[in-house]
Design a protein around this nucleic acid. Sequence first.
DNA 1: CAGCATCCTCATTGATACTG
DNA 2: CAGTATCAATGAGGATGCTG
Lengths: 127, 127
Amino acid sequence: MQVDDARQARMCYARQVLDRIADKWSLSVVHQLSTTPVMRFTELQRGIDGISQRMLTSTVRALERDGLVERTVHPVVPPRVDYRLTPLGTTLMSTVCSLMTWAVEHADDIDQARAAYDEKAARDQVG
Amino acid sequence: MQVDDARQARMCYARQVLDRIADKWSLSVVHQLSTTPVMRFTELQRGIDGISQRMLTSTVRALERDGLVERTVHPVVPPRVDYRLTPLGTTLMSTVCSLMTWAVEHADDIDQARAAYDEKAARDQVG
DNA sequence: CAGCATCCTCATTGATACTG
DNA sequence: CAGTATCAATGAGGATGCTG
């Protein structure tokens, strides 16, 4: 029926957004750029613990392709490339913030649920 | 400084939540259970296009472990297992809804950005 | 400086067969 | 019915070396 189709369509959109931001590094990059509006490649890499050059490159390229990050190449030697959030990227970040808020508010609930589940599993192993 | 630490901490929480819900099937399962409150294993599988038994099992187990889904085993033959969202799972779903709303509202923006990016890349290839 | 090219590893997922 | 067990494939991501 129509209502279900609309729901399914929204799910597909949600999946696409998750596919965009839920990889290993995208959220860290967007987050960095939300705290420091303009950053160069090496600055980004220094600010994100553990990211490799390769992954930073592919991450910012994907974000650029989707219009979330703007990449500006300055024709100078040595090269200088600036990154900043687009308005679209900024609106996404504020939406992700609500997810972060949920995460912070319910972190304890999840931890407790996990502990209870694992303890029960351990008991079932023995008994 | 303190403010940055707090930001970093929130990012970690956000990552954990994303790690929980952003795998291939979790969102579909939670979504199914938000439209039909109580479902059995096979019902879930039929409702989620393309999911295998193995992935449905591991997905609902992970959701159960984190307290987002409740699993009820009825001691009957043949076996009967019911799944439903917990209150915690319900609050998460409503948060995810805001992400879906963003996705729907900005799907066109992303599509256009991608088309522009790809077209430019194609032109740069040639020229 | 800001990448690209290559090789390699490991985790996730799928397919299939079996079971209490 | 609701799983478990095993094997195979895919691809995301890491390490390293090179370059305009």
